[in-house]
Amino acid sequence: MSDVLGFYPYIAVAILLMIGLYTVMAHSNLVKKLIGLSVFQSAVFLMFISLGRRDGGTAPIAPMEHGHAVVDPAIIYSHPLPHVLILTAIVVGVATTAVGLALVVRINESYRSIEERDALASDRKVDEQLDQAG
């Protein structure tokens, strides 16, 4: 049991990844797919941050003395590098999500639907008409 307790963030990461992946694959709605992707993304963020965590640690911000940061060997810090990577990844994530949503808006304007199936069906219809004409 203690084994499982030591790994609980990773198990949560795996479950969230599964839910995100399922949402992306099982749903035909394009907005829902993007939301599933962002759940998937959050799970990855969570995993990186869990790896940097250290028991008894604190946020990697040093104390100040006389206007200067000082090194205090007694303080345990969590690792700052995953924080840096994920911090930028979150903002890049929202920018790329916006690109996806813009594509969804354009797809809706062309196909009058944000369902993947409807768009594929209307593509197929156009193909058939072209085949008959040709």
Binding site: V91, V94, A95, A98, A102, V105, N108, E109
Partner: peptide
């Protein structure tokens, strides 16, 4: 850059007229 891109994103989405189905 981040502030202006975020505002541009909002203006782009909010400024687009809805197409009647």
């Amino acid at each position: 850059t981040v502030a202006s891109v975020m505002m541009l994103l909002f203006f782009a989405f909010a400024g687009r007229g809805k197409v009647k189905a």
